[in-house]
Amino acid sequence: MRGRSAQDLVGGLALVALSVLAFSQISDLDMGRAARMGPGYFPTLLAGGVGLFGVFIAGRGLIVAGPGLDSWGWRHLLPVIVAIIFFSFAIRPLGMVVAGTGIVLIGSFAAPDLRWRETLLFGAGLVLFTVLLFKVALNLPLAIWPRF
């Protein structure tokens, strides 16, 4: 019984945090009884379970040896996440061309072996393809250009 696992410790603590977050949302719901469950019964049970497992896994991480923490690849993570967030806010007001170009360009920053010229050409083709497919061929209610 020696060594510890930072991976399990942090993982377990995250479950505890999730459980706390859930409890903060369901505390005002009616529990009811087992025989006549209210809206809060099932979630309370689950949030409690998640918390218990979190404590167990974190505790185990303190005692039992296991893998340590893996470093996070922020260099890849950030562009991908930012690209999706950009798309979500751009698609309705700015249309497919802007949102599509944006997600491809921003996302491409995550590529370790980026070649800009290639990406620009490919991105342009891709956006054209999506416009032709979704708008022209399938007639989906998506805007192509920004609305003013």
Binding site: A99, V104, T119, F122
Partner: peptide, 26 residues
Amino acid sequence: RLLFPAILLFCCIGVYTINSSHVDVL
């Protein structure tokens, strides 16, 4: 390096079209 931005784009359009909801994409 080219495949993943394409996947990102299709994913976002796909998710968006279900309910036209930008929150779903977020």
